[in-house]
């Protein structure tokens, strides 16, 4: 039975210009799906919940997709119920999303809500899907500081794709324009809670000041003029090279940087 992969894509936002673009993490999710399609003889659907006339969808299609599925929703609608309904009806094995959308609320809750709705395990921040054998996938999680963790998860599952995943391929204009975009009408649920909220352009956050809580003038003076260096550590001058190396090595072991 061939594998079914669904990649969810959204409209991105360029951090400097604010223009609409292919979202970084969603592009990586599509790239990961396309790689699996090539290696595992899987079939991939790229799904967008929103307006089908969105020009950014052509950027995703330009990665070499013959077609895109769109659930026709307006800006005020909640995407999760329609997506969950679509996924329940389909026989998807893997759902790939970005970690956080670049527009809208960008709460990063979509994969969690879908996983909860479908009752599937959720794998957060994956860097790669290494292999899929007998219905069990071996996944690399992206941890902070460039570290990786290996997990095995049974199909089906929802995964959010981290920025550590392979970068998406270049998007070509012509194939993007030629791709077919299949919009389907769904029953829209308006996101009523959000209507009460006020949105404004982001204010720059105040920088935290270093407040010196000193009792006397001498203390305040010292805090203002002293070099910010901490107290000097241990200095080994007369020990042999071997002793020095041993001491350094012990510190490395204590800090657990050497495993």
């Amino acid at each position: 039975m061939p594998l079914n992969i669904v990649s969810l894509v959204s409209v991105g936002r360029h951090p400097q210009s604010g223009r609409e673009r292919r979202a970084e993490q969603d592009g990586r999710a599509v790239e990961l799906g396309m790689n699996l399609e090539a290696s595992q003889s899987a079939s991939m659907t790229v799904l967008h919940a929103g307006r089908s006339v969105e020009p950014v969808l052509r950027n995703y299609a330009g990665m070499g997709l013959p077609s895109l599925e769109v659930l026709e929703l307006s800006e005020q609608d909640d995407a999760v119920p329609s997506l969950a309904q679509y996924l329940k009806a389909s026989d998807a094995d893997i759902v790939l999303t970005g970690v956080r959308a670049e527009s809208g609320e960008s709460s990063g809750m979509v994969p969690y809500l879908l996983a909860e709705e479908l009752g599937w395990p959720l794998v957060p921040r994956i860097a790669d899907i290494v292999s899929i054998n007998n219905g069990v996938a071996e996944i690399l999680l992206a941890l902070p500081r460039g570290q990786r963790r290996s997990l095995s998860v049974p199909l089906p599952f929802v995964a959010s794709v981290d920025n550590a995943a392979p970068a998406p391929r270049q998007s070509a204009y012509g194939p993007g324009m030629r791709a077919s975009i299949d919009a389907s009408q769904v029953t829209a649920v308006t996101d009523s809670a959000r209507e009460q909220w006020q949105e404004a352009p982001a204010k720059p956050r105040p920088k935290r000041l270093k407040v010196v809580k000193a009792k006397t003038a001498a203390d305040r003076f010292k805090a203002a003029t002293a070099k910010p260096q901490g107290k000097a550590g241990k200095v080994m001058k007369n020990e042999s090279a071997q002793e020095q190396a041993q001491e350094i090595f012990n510190l490395l072991l204590e800090e657990k940087v050497i495993k």
Binding site: A232, K237, A241, A245, I248
Partner: peptide, 21 residues
């Protein structure tokens, strides 16, 4: 002055010992 631990000596010797360890 900044370091928590400093070894004063020839770096080549100390690195050789570290390598061994």
């Amino acid at each position: 002055k900044r370091a928590a631990l400093s070894a004063i000596g020839d770096s080549e010797e100390i690195l050789a010992e570290l390598l061994k360890l």
